[in-house]
């Protein structure tokens, strides 16, 4: 039942995403907004979608067999959620600002690198050997 609900939510989100992109393209073709504005609006949409997804990331904890791995997974999901939510919001905000295109991407890349680094540290680092992440 949960899988069906998740699938339905994902399909609705994907449909909304495609409809939004098509609408932006139509508005752009109609000459109401410039190509640059359409691209920026889509980037804002992407950033907000990532922030929304990241908000629920820490809730996606599964079943566990030993408390140490559960603690690691929990802390990695929490850090990932915060990093991607802040990264997504920063991506959306900087896409609106008159800054080079590389700035929003660099912010997102920083969030991704932080999550990767933390995940490696949590699962392989000293905290894991002691029986749990920080």
């Amino acid at each position: 039942m949960t899988i069906h609900r998740n699938l339905a939510t994902a399909l609705i989100a994907a449909g909304g995403y495609i409809a939004g992109a098509l609408l932006l393209k139509l508005v752009e073709k109609g000459g109401y907004i410039s190509h640059d504005a359409a691209v920026r609006a889509l980037a804002v949409f992407n950033g907000l979608a990532l922030a929304t997804y990241a908000n629920f990331l820490p809730k996606s904890i599964g079943k566990f067999k030993d408390p140490a791995s559960a603690l690691c997974m929990e802390s990695v999901l929490r850090v990932s959620g915060w990093a991607f939510m802040l990264g997504g919001l920063a991506f959306a905000i900087t896409s609106l600002l008159p800054v080079p295109d590389t700035v929003p991407l660099a912010l997102l890349a920083t969030a991704t690198a932080y999550v990767l680094g933390y995940s490696i540290w949590a699962f392989m680092g000293p905290a894991r050997r002691k029986g749990g992440a920080a």
Partner: peptide
């Protein structure tokens, strides 16, 4: 919170979204 039974023990875990946190 998330609840899981391990043997006879009921284990509680945090299950907060970023906004709830």
């Amino acid at each position: 919170v998330d609840v899981q039974k391990l043997g006879k023990t009921v284990i509680y875990r945090l299950k907060l979204s970023v906004l709830e946190d």
